[in-house]
Design a protein around this nucleic acid. Structure first.
Length: 202
DNA sequence: CGCCGGATTTAA
DNA sequence: TAAATCCGGCGA
């Protein structure tokens, strides 16, 4: 990953979701002074993936998934949390990557305030709801272009120390085959990864 | 470590 | 009207 800090080019996100997802590890999410380094992600397929929000076709909520790659798809979960996804693949395919964990690179004071924490710990941004909260995201960022300067941006970071993979979390409603798919990826050298023991070296 | 409530949106 | 790509707090 040459030139850390540079905006990710559109071609990066236009590839198949299972290929893009692990390569997002180490990339940076920037919103104002806050910069997070991605440590854990999950790939979600289109209508054929019974774990995906796209499984019932296009709806008002998931419409950003059908749009161009590199856009944000944000949705509200369990009445409490916002979840950030990066749309991937060709337009109309409806695939996306859920950002599940991150480390703080810059803007720690702001992150601590948003998270209601007094000091940095490995779990400060470990969990999809925590990532969105740390970045100060909500509905207004749904559909936002992450590859253009301004607002929330996706930028080059560094490479993960070691890539781990395993089944996705919280998808008990999906078919056994889709539950078994190893579409959760994490940086094995990072502490900001939930249920790390369930992952294996790739 | 495991259970449990929170609080809202969504779509079958 | 159930279920949702969770989180933090509490008790053991």
């Amino acid at each position: 990953m040459p030139r850390p800090g540079e905006l990710i080019p559109p071609g990066f996100c236009q590839r198949p979701v299972a290929q893009v997802a692990p390569e997002l590890l180490g990339c940076h999410l920037r919103h104002g002074e806050v910069v997070l380094r991605i440590t854990e992600v999950e790939a979600y397929g289109g209508p054929g993936d019974s774990a995906s929000h796209a499984r019932h076709g296009r709806t008002a909520r998931n419409s950003p998934m059908w749009g161009p790659a590199g856009r944000a798809y944000l949705y509200f979960c369990y009445g409490v949390h916002w979840m950030l996804n990066v749309v991937t693949g060709p337009e109309g395919e409806a695939t996306a990557v859920l950002i599940r964990g991150a480390e703080v690179v810059a803007g720690l004071e702001t992150v601590l305030q948003r998270r209601g924490a007094s000091r940095a710990t490995p779990s400060l941004c470990a969990g999809p709801g925590k990532v969105a909260q740390a970045l100060g995201l909500d509905k207004t960022f749904d559909g936002h272009d992450l590859l253009a300067p301004g607002g929330l941006e996706l930028r080059r970071g560094d490479l993960p120390g070691r890539t781990l993979a395993g089944p996705r979390l919280g998808i008990g409603f999906a078919t056994p085959e889709d539950q078994a798919r190893a579409w959760r990826f994490a940086d094995g050298h990072s502490a900001a990864v939930l249920k790390k023991a369930q992952l294996e070296i790739t």
